[in-house]
């Protein structure tokens, strides 16, 4: 009897000690399409212009190298942009409705009018700060020369006044709100660029876009947009893909499908939309508030249509292991030209 009990105890002990969670290895078969990595880098300090046709990066620029941008296309809404990478706390301003540039403003003036602040994003026409001060009549653009208080980023506040704005040139002046450090700038506008960029900090013109606005299709960048995902709607900095507004790019997305299951026949029967932010940021899902930068990627394939040509894209990662840290800011995707 004793032997039986001892055997039972031994059996139970053995049974329990055998049980263990086994994790992998797993066979992951990646399709043989071009794998692209977009180096926005840590803190998204770079913006990247990408060409679908050539499957290559056309240009990489410092995200924060510029503060204001002017388009030479005077018919476009969103003629003047502020750097849209600062999120809720920057890239916004207020129309003082005052044309006297020498008026002095204080921090308390600004704080009292905080609710009047607007953003200046070209894709957010309802919130464009400058448009109401620029009248386009008889092929000419007229500025009412109102002075704007701009919060470029927390702690960096200036005032600016657009004096003259033509298709080829813009004249404006800017200075600190206490009316010091004022500068008047005459900036030529390159029609081959969507926008022409200027840095208030360095008081110089900055080259941001590739030399030709038809050489690229997607701008990967950090940008500010109105988010409704929180309990209250708010402007928030996201990171994603913006389609080139100068090209007639349409897009669609098919959920729960991998890129190797999307062929020309499937792409041809989809309905496409003209939406610069159609791809946007929502292909990834924030998964971790910690510094390991972990995001999950939505199981979907995007198709971008340019005339008769279809490009399929499936994002695979947003983070990259660098040393012992998983750094976010490295979108990776597979691309197939159908």
């Amino acid at each position: 009897m004793k032997l039986k009990y001892n055997s039972l105890i031994f059996f139970i002990l053995s049974l329990n000690s055998c049980i263990k969670v086994i994790d992998g290895p797993i066979d992951i078969q990646k399709p043989n399409f071009t794998a692209i990595e977009i180096p926005l880098t840590k803190d998204y300090s770079q913006k990247v212009y990408y060409s679908l046709a050539t499957k290559s990066i056309v240009k990489t620029t410092n995200t924060y190298s510029w503060d204001i941008a002017f388009t030479s296309d005077l018919t476009r809404k969103g003629k003047v942009l502020l750097n849209y990478a600062y999120g809720e706390t920057g890239g916004k301003g207020m129309n003082t409705l005052n044309t006297d540039f020498d008026s002095i403003y204080t921090a308390s003036n600004i704080e009292a009018n905080a609710l009047k602040f607007k953003y200046a994003n070209f894709y957010d026409i309802n919130s464009n700060l400058f448009d109401n001060s620029l009248s386009y009549i008889n092929n000419e653009l007229t500025s009412n020369q109102n002075v704007f208080i701009l919060v470029l980023e927390p702690g960096r506040v200036i005032k600016v006044q657009i004096l003259q704005y033509t298709k080829t040139n813009v004249v404006f002046r800017h200075g600190k709100i206490d009316n010091t450090d004022t500068v008047t700038v005459s900036m030529p506008l390159n029609p081959n660029n969507n926008y022409n960029y200027y840095s208030f900090k360095n008081k110089n013109i900055v080259s941001v876009e590739p030399s030709s606005n038809t050489s690229w299709d997607i701008e990967f960048t950090k940008y500010t947009t109105l988010l409704t995902e929180f309990n209250s709607t708010r402007y928030y900095a996201v990171t994603g893909a913006i389609l080139n507004p100068s090209k007639s790019l349409e897009y669609t997305m098919i959920n729960n499908i991998n890129i190797d299951n999307v062929d020309i026949a499937k792409a041809s029967i989809q309905s496409y939309k003209l939406d610069l932010l159609g791809i946007g940021y929502s292909w990834k899902k924030f998964s971790s508030p910690s510094s390991d930068g972990f995001y999950t990627i939505e199981p979907r394939t995007y198709i971008v249509k340019e005339g008769p040509t279809f490009y399929s894209i499936q994002f695979t990662e947003f983070s990259k292991l660098i040393g012992t840290t998983m750094e976010k800011g490295y979108p990776q995707f597979l691309q197939n030209n159908l």
């Binding site: 991998n258 390991d292 972990f294 999950t296 499936q314």
Partner: peptide, 16 residues
């Protein structure tokens, strides 16, 4: 306790 994560996508080889 092991908190296993999903790979970021179907073709991700590394997870945290």
């Amino acid at each position: 306790i092991l908190n296993k994560q999903d790979p970021a996508s179907a073709y991700s080889e590394n997870v945290i």
